[in-house]
Design a protein around this nucleic acid. Structure first.
Length: 214
DNA sequence: TTCGGGATCGACT
DNA sequence: GTCGATCCCGAAT
């Protein structure tokens, strides 16, 4: 097999594993749960999705796009599904969401926690600017168990707002995961959202060490 | 293991 | 002018 054939085969293999765009054109609550156990592939880093939250603009006071309210920041939520909505929070961190449902329906799934499975070394430099062997147990434990940490580990920031999650630099793939139980709970830090704060729209893999808040 | 204060700034009111 | 879909570290328990 020559190099070109080998390259073509590897692309085919990738295409086969990469989640189809239509995966995200489904009810947000379904997508949020189905993403658990799947892998994010970001450049050469791969990570299992452990924890997600659903945000459903039309009916959700916790969502930036509640009642279809459109601003400069949240405009990509009104775009096509399967793109990244990444915004800055608390002046210094970022949150990574994937837009769901049809164009004009401002909905998204927030990725709150991941478990790095491939190329931990590169992720370590992204997260802490030093090699894995130099990390404390505290740093290892808190590697990617929160939305801001997810973005740091995967080197995602505002400049990636609006990119597709079906591209070579960033995509989601099937994972040969073992079976697991999904826990449903209230979302984190949205106390201002009146009745929406009690919606059970947060999902995580039961018992996983990387869950951000038990 | 949990708690509380500081960091830090753009988006929104 | 206010505050957030957060994180870190030191102090207290």
């Amino acid at each position: 097999m020559n190099v070109y054939t080998s390259y073509k085969n590897s692309l085919k293999k990738k295409e086969k594993q990469m989640l189809d765009k239509s995966f995200f054109n489904r009810p947000t609550l379904q997508v949020a749960q189905d993403l658990l156990g799947k892998s994010i592939v970001r450049n050469n880093i791969k990570a299992t999705i452990i924890e997600t939250e659903a945000y459903i603009g039309p009916i959700d006071k916790a969502c930036h796009a509640y009642n279809f309210h459109k601003t400069t920041r949240n405009s990509v939520m009104f775009q096509e599904y399967a793109i990244a909505y990444i915004y800055q929070i608390y002046g210094m961190y970022h949150c990574f969401n994937i837009v769901t449902e049809k164009k004009g329906m401002p909905c998204a799934v927030l990725i709150r926690a991941i478990d790095i499975t491939n190329n931990n070394e590169k992720a370590s430099y992204n997260r802490y600017h030093k090699p894995l062997t130099n990390l404390s147990s505290y740093q290892l434990k808190n590697f990617s168990n929160g939305p801001g940490k997810v973005c740091m580990s995967l080197d995602l920031n505002k400049s990636h707002n609006g990119i597709e999650v079906i591209s070579n630099g960033l995509y989601i793939e099937e994972c040969l995961s073992q079976s697991f139980e999904i826990v449903k709970s209230k979302r984190i830090n949205i106390d201002y959202a009146s009745e929406a704060k009690d919606f059970l729209w947060r999902f995580y893999i039961k018992g996983n060490k990387n869950v951000s808040v038990i």
